[in-house]
Nucleic acid binder design. Structure first.
Lengths: 191, 191
DNA sequence: GTCTATAAGATGATAGAC
DNA sequence: GTCTATCATCTTATAGAC
């Protein structure tokens, strides 16, 4: 039964879900295998070690996220502030599906997993910060975002607040506090 | 060799450290036993199940944290803004010792551990928010903090940002971004 | 209180048949 | 590619000696 490409994609999909819900130490090859409908040995064929599997998921996640951010950025119908709102909504959707940001989860599991996973998480946060900084600059042009004293620092703070609030929403199984944090962040950007 | 009180305290101390560094699924009774210098069966005498041990650590953590916050609050030599700065410094110290906030870590491990641990984390975040809200009000009196449109929401955002930034600092093994987030938060409170 | 001994199950990983 | 079979190790937890 050669599903080849489909099998690998399913393994990545399911692993990402488990990773966002339970973290590196919270799922096993068997958990993934059961949900995909294969045997755990098959996963080792695609990903020899657990570290390989998790790094592959991290790369896929960053790539998908980058695509989404590029699409938001390219949408000329949105003001810069609305782009930040859409950015925040990604985190909201994550929490709404009972998950944490993958890289937030990887950051919390820094000790067990490979250094490569940590590095991906770190670079991911840097990507988000840089994207927000760009949008802040555009917002100064289109007038939707006020002039910020330290745009780099403000962008970092928004990323940190969203990561923290998503974690809290996941824990409480309640989005209301995340919504408040998002509202506070957007209000802080308005002219 | 009856160390009694001392043994239980050591178990809690070591467990807290492991919990903040590796999370619920990242440490075992044997890890704790090895560091305390006892056998894992001894831990079961004090804490029958792992869930009991973790809940006990969470209670101790919340209690210790509450004491620290009460001390800061009672210090009349500090302005309200300086009290917020000391509050933020607790997170900085946590990251400086290569740890995450215990409740931030418990929040990320929501699936494996007991519901009670999740609840403690949730209540902990509520405690921090309420404390900050009080200090914000005091800051309006002593003039060290500006009038905030939504103090409750602002307090929540500060908690979320500190939790997120501590996680990022832990992952990157670098405090500089946490320092930036703290500076940004304090600047946002100044009159 | 703390130990030894041990159970019963899960884990990441490999070898080799098909 | 996917399977069965198996390994060595680790996990939480218990029973009972001292």
């Amino acid at each position: 039964m050669p599903s080849s490409k489909a099998t690998e994609a399913q393994i990545l999909e399911i692993t990402q879900e488990l990773l966002q819900r339970r973290g590196y130490d919270g799922f096993s090859y068997r958990d993934v295998a059961d949900r995909v409908g294969i045997r755990s040995a098959t996963i080792h064929y695609y990903f020899p070690a657990k570290a390989d599997l998790v790094v592959a998921v991290a790369e896929r996640y960053r790539s998908d996220f980058a695509t989404t951010l590029a699409e938001i950025l390219a949408d000329d119908s949105l003001s810069a502030l609305e782009k930040v709102a859409q950015f925040a909504d990604i985190f909201r959707q994550t929490a709404a599906t009972n998950r944490v940001c993958l890289c937030g989860m990887l950051a919390s599991g820094s000790k067990s997993q490979s250094d490569k996973a940590n590095q991906h998480a770190q670079e991911f946060f840097g990507d988000l910060q840089a994207w927000l900084e760009d949008v802040f600059a555009a917002g100064r042009q289109d007038g939707s975002i006020r002039a910020l004293a330290e745009p780099r620092r403000a962008a970092l703070s928004v990323v940190a607040a969203l990561e923290g609030a998503t974690l809290m929403a996941y824990n409480a199984r309640d989005l209301s506090q995340l919504d408040e944090v998002i509202a506070e962040a957007l209000d802080g950007l308005r002219p």
